[in-house]
């Protein structure tokens, strides 16, 4: 799916950070290649924002190392930061400035050359569809437009790594769709990390997902792997003339059966031994009148719940 030869744009090794006695980030490793969109998923307070703040140089790393396009963030912060765009939550907007002036400021502090200033601004205004509000004060814009201005400031210097902290929070469904497609577009050329606790967002835009819980990465892999990472494969079947549980359990490959309702059953089976056709032939032979058979895939949601509900303390 991904070109493994694509250059690594961000590499974080064994990041740790404590606030007081509480270790908020406990040994996080991340690697991102050009063209990848990584979703950092986790419940509130999992340490997502802290991790992102460290990756952008807003917060010192207690232990570990961050490299952006091969440049160490600690020893050469200015060079490393010039390849990063960051949209924190809430977005860092000067509410009493107008959009144009704000973007000019952002372009300047990102050290964009004077000659390229206006073309850079024109580009982000088009990308983020801000043309109609250029002269408005940011404070008077709606939440969705403010978020877009926030994204515009993060991509104005065409960073190799774009880091977005909950980019779609507080937006209406249309705006969410627009912003997701924008992130997807940017993700094709650069690398993007976005944090969220919205699962659909990951489904919609990400190639890779890392689930974070209590400061640790508890799952990492591509979205394709999520579905196959299912520990207990499940089939949901419905019979109008239901047999006894033992009859169903006798089908080869089936490990156990649960009753969901009078006619619906959940069949658990060992991974690899898919009993679907066996169930169908048994049902026709014994006239159970099969009316439903669905493989219950583990969705990202199940995985997320499984990984993050294990106890409320670390």
């Amino acid at each position: 799916m991904h070109d493994q030869a694509a250059p690594v744009t961000l590499k974080a090794t064994d990041l740790r950070r404590r606030f007081g006695d509480r270790e908020v980030v406990q040994g996080v490793n991340l690697e991102l290649r050009r063209g990848e969109v990584l979703g950092l998923l986790g419940p509130n307070g999992a340490g997502k924002s802290t991790t992102l703040r460290m990756l952008t140089g807003n917060l010192a790393v207690e232990h570990g190392r961050i490299e952006i396009c091969g440049v160490d963030l600690r020893t050469n912060p200015i060079k490393a930061k010039s390849n990063v765009g960051y949209l924190p939550e809430p977005p860092p907007l000067y509410k009493d400035w107008n959009v144009d002036d704000y973007l000019v400021l952002c372009a300047k502090i990102r050290r964009i050359e004077k000659t390229k200033l206006s073309s850079a601004i024109k580009r982000v205004i088009e990308l983020c569809q801000l043309a109609s509000v250029r002269k408005q004060l940011i404070g008077t814009l709606s939440r969705g437009y403010q978020q877009r201005v926030g994204i515009a400031q993060a991509i104005i210097h065409e960073p190799e790594v774009l880091i977005l902290d909950e980019p779609t929070v507080g937006l209406d469904p249309n705006q969410i769709r627009d912003i997701r497609s924008l992130i997807r577009d940017i993700g094709n050329l650069h690398s993007v990390i976005l944090s969220t606790h919205i699962l659909q967002e990951i489904d919609a835009v990400c190639d890779k997902v890392e689930i974070m819980h209590w400061g640790k990465l508890v799952y990492s892999g591509s979205l394709g792997q999520v579905t196959s990472a299912q520990p207990n494969p499940v089939l949901v079947v419905g019979f109008r003339r239901p047999p006894t549980l033992d009859d169903i359990a006798a089908i080869p490959g089936v490990t156990s059966v649960n009753t969901l309702s009078e006619t619906l059953f959940q069949i658990n089976f060992t991974a690899g031994a898919d009993p679907t056709s066996a169930v169908i032939s048994a049902a026709t032979n014994k006239d159970w009148d099969l009316f439903q058979i669905t493989p219950a895939k583990t969705s990202l949601e199940d995985l997320f719940i499984q990984l993050t509900q294990r106890g409320q303390t670390p």
Binding site: T56, G57, K81, Y86, Y94, I109, R110, R111, Q153
Partner: peptide, 14 residues
Amino acid sequence: ARHTLALLLSAPIS
């Protein structure tokens, strides 16, 4: 108070 410090801190300036 306005959370704009992040803009300066994440920009390539000392």
